[in-house]
Design a protein around this nucleic acid. Structure first.
Lengths: 300, 300
DNA sequence: GTCATCTTATCGGTTTTTCCGATCAGCCCC
DNA sequence: GGGGCTGATCGGAAAAACCGATAAGATGAC
């Protein structure tokens, strides 16, 4: 009496379907005695007689009839479970939760997601918009599976994996009549400017990169104001508060009346867009998505 | 590779729930090695890695996570299946299809059915109204499980079981001014009467019993008319077509203006109401219903 | 880096279970 | 009443599940 097993159910269904132990045994390629014993085991386990063997053709009892339906359900359920596991392992079934942030991913991102959705119709895709710091936290505690984010900072860089997709060059945002409003600007020329910054909580990578660049150029920037959205920063520049440094990819969507956007001369004047994930929680679905992103040249 | 078994699922769920092979093994009272082997078997059967064992705490892979849900469903389904079989065996779950016929069962029948329904709420009761000959056929081919019917005739009496519930005495239905309209009538006094009969197809038992009684009394009845419903027969008697012989239990509901109902003197002047079933297809539910009927004194 | 301590995997050997083949008893039809 | 079915039962063989010991790997304290 070691508990009911699927083998019991397989045998039981066969006996019911083929209308007898001998017939079923032939179909199953087992001996009639083995079948007989297994069914007897099952019946004693249940404490229920499943077959009426008194007549020539073995026939189900009333409880047997009901149990047959349940047994069929279980067996097909078992097949389904196996299928689920295999589909999931092959990356054709499951879920992927993606973190992104505005200003990070561009218009190509939805197109890539759409392509992934089409090639993996049985994978549920959950998109979560969150700022980079929250993305890292979400990756760490498993709330999301992959993030399109800024370069990882400690401690997250210790246990998360990341891959640079794109380098967004930084541009100086200057009033049109500004004396430095030329093609390329050397950041060292901006040492006495007044700066409108993005709040550090909103975009620490940009803020820190900016500080770093100035530091390398030998000065500490005078910050006269901060804002939380790109358009507000631009508005402040238009109003003459000061100048700003913004990543190139955000500029297209911004108003540019009265402004000039100038690339910075410094080679490292750029911030990275990376995709990051937890190496402990890799899955085939995740790898498929990564592969798609890589094949698209990382252009998200 | 002998196929997935419920044991594999039980072990798998335990390992997932207790977060490790060793912990699960302690809870299951099996050795860690046994558990390890079984899970390895399962994984190779599926062709899917279910756990990530690289870290201290064993953790599910993405396919493992999905498979866990399926495994839980299957295990609780297995429990449910066992429950279904046991409930059915104890007569607390299932279906019973009952055949009856008007004129056979009386006003107490619905009350008894109602009582059975209350004591067996999970048993589906299907009531089928059909004339006795059809009841027997339905019993024979398993369309119904029990019938409240007339005494079985060959060939059905050979393989169906029956039990007499009630004897309905036969009454002579006479016009009020009939010379024999007294308390008790001897059938021999009716030898020269004209008879209104129930059509044999409608009620062969009554018809045959009537013929039998007359035959025993030494005459063959003159049948002047037949009808298919009791009220029509009575109407014909009221109209002076002849006299009739009807079972007592039908008389209450019939119009009796201008008529007298007289019991017959003959001891065997009665027809039986029986319950019949197929002994090959007995079930606990069936036996419970029979028991209820018997405890009610067969008064249906 | 090393040790202590946890983890799971692997290996013989034992126990348990399943399976087989033969045989027996019951039912049905001829 | 035999011949041909049925399923049940038996002893022995094959397969499996299981165990205990041990190895290999990861983690965390020092």
């Amino acid at each position: 009496m070691t508990g009911m097993e699927l083998r019991h159910l397989r045998y039981f269904v066969a006996v019911a379907d083929y209308g007898g132990f001998s017939r079923a045994a032939r179909r199953l390629y087992v001996s009639q005695s083995a079948l007989s014993e297994q069914i007897a085991d099952l019946e004693s386990e249940l404490g229920v007689q499943l077959f009426d063997r008194s007549r020539l053709r073995t026939v189900l009892t009333a409880p047997g009839e009901l149990f047959l339906k349940e047994a069929r359900k279980l067996l097909s359920g078992a097949d389904a479970a196996i299928k689920v596991a295999r589909l999931s392992a092959s990356g054709d079934l499951g879920e992927i939760r993606i973190g992104f942030f505005t200003g990070g991913v561009g218009p190509n991102f939805p197109r890539l997601i759409q392509r992934f959705r089409q090639s993996h119709p049985r994978v549920h895709i959950a998109l979560h918009e969150m700022i980079p710091a929250l993305q890292w936290k979400a990756l760490a505690d498993g709330t999301i599976d992959i993030a399109f984010t800024r370069r990882l900072e400690v401690p997250y860089s210790n246990f998360l994996t990341s891959e640079v997709l794109r380098k967004d060059p930084l541009y100086a945002v200057l009033p049109k009549n500004h004396p430095l409003a030329r093609d390329v600007v050397d950041i060292r020329a901006l040492s006495h400017e007044r700066f409108v910054m993005c709040a550090r909580e909103t975009s620490p990578s940009l803020f820190d990169k900016m500080i770093e660049l100035c530091s390398e150029a030998g000065f500490s920037p005078e910050i006269v104001n901060t804002a939380n959205v790109w358009s507000s920063i631009v508005l402040l520049v238009q109003a003459g508060e000061g100048i700003a440094i913004l990543p190139a990819n955000t500029l297209q969507e911004l108003p540019k009346t009265g402004l000039v956007f100038c690339p910075l001369k410094q080679k490292n004047a750029s911030i990275d867009l990376v995709m990051a994930w937890s190496p402990d929680r890799e899955s085939t679905v995740l790898r498929h998505l990564q592969q798609l992103i890589r094949e698209a040249g990382g252009k998200v």
